[in-house]
């Protein structure tokens, strides 16, 4: 049994509830014992780094200091939170004057996707994959912060990453090649310039359809919300109305490992994924 600290962040306690549930579910099956960070607070997200650099370091550092009390690594499924933690670790080194007390780096922070793509986890996953996702064509959508900036994420192939593609292939799915893996969906502009997000999201959705994918897979709460909920006016090149389900990668891991609560997670999606999985004989 591996012990790890879990930082959920605000979205996983709200609109990305199925990401929280599926992340906890697959961690348990892979014998990772999660300890939710007690008294965690918001990482500050886009709003802090856009408005106040010192605050954008101080808010994540508060949580890093809490996590540093325990001798275990911290896993962050929300890639926006993860990015702020990595940026704060760097910012605290470059600008110690931002903090009232010096920051001592005690905790290793991992993005959940990177954590599960690590070789020991992959080996465990191989032995636990009971129901391979045969016949399911997935478009792996990394978005921005899972890969950029590369000096924070450590991802070398940041223009054409393939670690999520390999993870999906281990689960038995077919990862289709496509060129929108790391294009931006517009993220938090959804609140203020919804028009921009609709344009960007629909481009990503239609490119995944054009690449022959049955569904999109992501590990970002903003990407999932934007892609899952902005499909009302989606149509393909010949004008046909089409929808394409958007999964969290943890949901497909849970499905392949035969987790009992997959249906509950999937019932929270706005774009129905259950019909697709039933038609493929996977659910």
């Amino acid at each position: 049994m591996k012990e790890a600290t879990y930082y959920p962040g605000c979205s996983l306690h709200g609109t990305a509830r199925e990401y929280d549930e599926s992340f906890r579910g697959v961690s348990k099956l892979l014998e990772v014992n999660l300890h939710e960070l007690e008294d965690w607070t918001c990482c500050g997200s886009t709003s802090a780094h856009c408005t106040d650099e010192a605050l954008s370091v101080a808010l994540p550092v508060r949580n890093l200091n809490l996590a540093g009390k325990y001798d275990r690594e911290m896993i962050v499924p929300c890639v926006a939170c993860y990015s702020r933690f990595k940026a704060a670790q760097q910012g605290a080194k470059e600008h110690p004057e931002y903090l009232p007390t010096p920051y001592e780096e005690k905790v290793a922070v991992h993005y959940a996707l990177d954590f599960f793509c690590d070789s020991s986890m992959i080996e465990a996953l191989k032995t636990k994959t009971a129901k391979p996702l045969s016949g399911l064509k997935v478009a792996c959508y990394y978005g921005c912060l899972a890969v950029r900036p590369p000096d924070l994420t450590g991802v070398k192939q940041y223009e054409n990453p393939d670690h999520m593609d390999r993870l999906m292939e281990i689960l038995g799915a077919e990862a289709v090649p496509w060129s929108y893996k790391t294009d931006c969906c517009g993220a938090s502009l959804v609140m203020t310039r919804t028009d921009i997000v609709i344009t960007l999201s629909q481009k990503i959705l239609s490119m995944a359809l054009e690449a022959g994918a049955d569904c999109i897979v992501t590990g970002c709460t903003m990407c999932h919300a934007n892609l899952d909920t902005r499909q009302a006016s989606l149509s393909d090149a010949s004008g046909n109305k089409n929808k394409i389900p958007v999964f969290y990668f943890t949901e497909l891991m849970g499905l392949a490992m035969g987790h009992r609560e997959v249906k509950k997670w999937l019932s929270r999606h706005v774009t129905d994924p259950i019909k697709l999985l039933s038609s493929k004989g996977l659910l």
Binding site: C10, S11, G14, C42, S45, T46, T51
Partner: peptide, 24 residues
Amino acid sequence: GEKDVPVFHMVFLESIKRTGRIHE
């Protein structure tokens, strides 16, 4: 030039200040 965007950021930060976490 985009008045709603900084307003959103300020509301977001006020929300963190109020409760520590974002209640969506």
